[in-house]
Design a protein around this nucleic acid. Structure first.
Lengths: 99, 99
DNA sequence: ACAATTAGTCAGAAAAACATGACTACACCA
DNA sequence: TGGTGTAGTCATGTTTTTCTGACTAATTGT
């Protein structure tokens, strides 16, 4: 009843969850280690707070990233790749050859 | 020199080639048979000429669809999935399970 | 000859995405 | 007590994407 013929397609959800100016780069950085807000702003040249904040929130909502408050020395927040996120990697590798 | 850290990622190209409001649905319809302009407009509820025309052109440029003029009874144009397009299908199927 | 169907193009408006700069709020350090 | 670093939010403006409706042009049916 929501969207006639579009939903029920898992690829659509995934593609949409990664389309956006910065999301894919963020995903790739998350492969190398946990993400932190201000660090991201420096790493993603040209990106701005607003967009990064929204992208983080959406990637989290879509279950690709997990947000954790790290109660340590300099209390901060980390976003790390979820199981679901990791599961995509080998599939993405196949695209390298298929394209 | 073009985009510092983004290129050399095959997923980026694919995601971009399929991001857009209608492209993924069009891809899926192309799996079922050749696409035709006016038929698409009817099948994609809410879509408009302009967007469909642009999506077709881009999918063609990206090598996912192939445009053919069919010189027959009612002379018309068909867009069918390319080899490259078909190659994506098994990978997409894996995404269904991974998500 | 006339109307319908095909496959579009074009200019302009509306909507969505993205960017900018100011601001908040908490923790941490001296 | 005041400054720095953390992780944001908010209002506003710009840019990109999508939509609307009018129009074109060739082909086909009556």
């Amino acid at each position: 009843m929501t969207t006639p013929q579009s939903e029920n397609c898992p690829v659509e959800g995934l593609i949409k969850s990664l389309s956006g100016k910065w999301k894919l780069q963020m995903f790739r950085l998350a492969l190398e280690g946990p993400l932190r807000f201000n660090a991201l702003l420096r790493q993603l040249e040209g990106a701005n707070k607003q967009s990064v904040a929204i992208a983080l929130k959406e990637l989290e909502e879509q279950g690709l990233l997990i947000k954790t408050v790290v109660r340590q020395k300099p209390l901060h927040i980390e976003y790390h790749l979820s199981e679901k996120g990791h599961a995509l990697v080998p599939i993405f590798r196949q695209l390298e050859t298929a394209s």
